[in-house]
Every structure is written in structure tokens, then in C-alpha cells.
Design a binder for these strands. Structure first.
Lengths: 156, 156
DNA sequence: CGGGAACTGTTGCGTCCGCAATCTGTTCCC
DNA sequence: GGGAACAGATTGCGGACGCAACAGTTCCCG
């Protein structure tokens, strides 16, 4: 017999699904309306901005964003066309490529951040106590580790 | 000055995003591999199966699934073509239409449910204590209500 | 009763992503 | 040292969703 989640856990899962969709739609909308920046672009720029030199290998970026390699290639194409990142091939492994934040990209991220952070607070963070926020992080981290997605989850 | 989430809450949000994506990908994969059923199909069938007579108005279904009306129209098209639901126009409001579960649809849902429930338990529920599960539900419900998405969240 | 506003569902179009195949470059191992 | 396996990134193709526009109904208020 296969194991099944009890009602409590099943409801938690369903609420997670629904909340995520509604929240993502709202935040995406605000970012698009007020800064003309898709959320996926924001997240990619953010990952690069958090590295010391604003660059990351393509496959690391893909894993960090939970995208397939092909998905990331296309996303990076769009950002490169827009001038927000540039590509540079890796000198030590000529198969590989870096995605590198351009000054325009960094500026665009800085310009959008207050809007997005406001949205996250207003629609999400505001409803959490300190303990709840900590607990969410802890629980999700456990789930991620079990999924084998933890690799660099902590740094990202 | 705009409000900002503190580090703790920001991390909770980022983990939520990442966990959701990884989890959804895993569960979708299992359902597709073992039952050849897209997760979106499963969720639509589930909503219908939870009503007394296996039917729901299109706009209610769209809201319940957090889909746009056009998105739902296309999804319902695919399920109708597959014979898992059928449409029936509403007798009291000729603009409206019902999506109605067919016997095939109900059977398909029953066949897939054990796989999906197993996945939810294995990749998610198993990592939660009773308290944590209850807390997640509670927190997400608050967020949903604030987003105005609560309407029928409790019944769904 | 009449006509405009609001609601319900669908369609054209564009966008974005995943899968599988491919290409180049690297590593392994005998 | 050389060929087979492997790794990193890209491309063709198809699927799925959202936005805006549309068509048909219903509602409501003058």
C-alpha cells in the first residue's frame, strides 16, 4: 500500500499551490506594470547581483532558478538582447559560458527592487510572525534537501 | 518610503518559490510518467469530483484553479477532447456553461490519485510535523484572504 | 420598455518553457 | 595517445498560458 498524506498535510499542500499561484500572479503584475520587468528577469538579475563579480555559469544559474538548461538559454537570450546581461565563454573550460551582469542590468535591478520588495512584504511577509517566517524557511529547506535541490539553495 | 520585508521573511519567500518549483516539477513528472496525466488535468478533475454532482461553472473552475478564463477554456478543450469532461450550457443563464465530469474522467482521477497522494506525502507531507502542517495552512489562508483569493478557497 | 453597463465564455496572437536531438569540448581509461 | 563516455550549452519543435478583442446574455436604471 502506498503511503498517503493525512488531511492536514494534504490541505497544507493545496493551500501552498493556490497561494503560490495567486501570489506570483500579483507580484508579476506589479513588477510588470510599474517597472516593465518580468519576474523571471528580476530573479535572474538578482542571482547574478548576489555573486561577488556579477557572473555565474549557465548551468549554475539554471539550477539556481530551477529552470532547464534550454529554458535558461532562451531567458538569457532575451536578457542579453535587452542589454541586461552579456555572455562570456569560460577560459578554463571552453564548453562553458558565463552570464554576466551589465551595468544596465544592475541599474535595472536596483530600480525594480523597491517595488518588488514592497510587494513581497505587503502580500506575504506582512502576514507572518517572526516565528512563522523562520518555520517556513526551515520546513522548505528540509523539503528542498530531500528533493536534492539543496546544493546551493542556502547561498541563493 | 516603501515597506520592505526583513531578511527572515525574504528568505521564507525565496524558499517558497524554489520549493514550489522543484516540488511541482517532481510531482508533475511522476504523474506523467506513471499515469500519463498532466498535473493541471488532475487538479481540474479533482475540483469537479469534489462537487456533489461533478459539475462546476467555467468561471468558478477558473477561479478555483487560479487560471484566467482563456486559460481554462483551452484546458477544458483538451480534457473534453480526451473525453474526461463534457460541457453543458447553463439552462438559467445562456451565457454560462458547466464543465461536467464524465465517468471516464472520474475513473482516470481515481486511477491517478494514489500516485499523486503518494508523491505529496513522500516529497512534502513526510517532512512536516502536525503543527507545521496546520501552521502552513493557517498562514497561507491568511495570505489568500488578503489577496482576495479566499472566496471558495476553503471549500477547494 | 429600452439601451447601455456588466458579465460569461471563446478566439487570435504572442510569449515562455520543457523535451529530445545536436554540437562542441573535456575527461577517462586502457 | 586515442577513442568512448560524459558535460555544457544551444536549437527545433510543440505545448500551455495570458492579454486583448469579441460575441452573446443578462441586469439595471431611467
Amino acid at each position: 500500500m502506498t503511503t498517503r498524506p493525512d488531511e492536514r498535510r494534504l490541505q497544507a499542500w493545496e493551500r501552498l499551490l493556490r497561494t503560490h499561484r495567486a501570489l506570483l500572479r500579483q507580484l508579476e503584475q506589479e513588477l510588470k506594470d510599474e517597472r516593465d520587468l518580468p519576474l523571471a528577469w528580476y530573479e535572474l538579475l538578482l542571482r547574478l547581483a548576489r555573486t561577488p563579480d556579477g557572473r555565474l555559469r549557465m548551468h549554475e544559474l539554471a539550477q539556481s532558478l530551477v529552470l532547464t538548461p534550454s529554458g535558461l538559454t532562451r531567458l538569457a537570450d532575451r536578457l542579453e538582447t535587452a542589454g541586461l546581461i552579456r555572455r562570456e565563454s569560460c577560459p578554463t573550460d571552453r564548453r562553458g559560458a558565463f552570464a554576466i551582469l551589465t551595468p544596465d542590468g544592475r541599474a535595472r535591478l536596483r530600480h525594480a527592487a523597491p517595488i518588488h520588495l514592497r510587494g513581497i512584504d505587503q502580500h506575504f511577509g506582512r502576514h507572518l510572525s517572526d516565528d512563522e517566517a523562520a518555520q517556513l524557511s526551515r520546513v522548505f529547506t528540509k523539503v528542498l534537501i530531500a528533493l536534492g535541490e539543496d546544493e546551493d539553495a542556502c547561498s541563493a
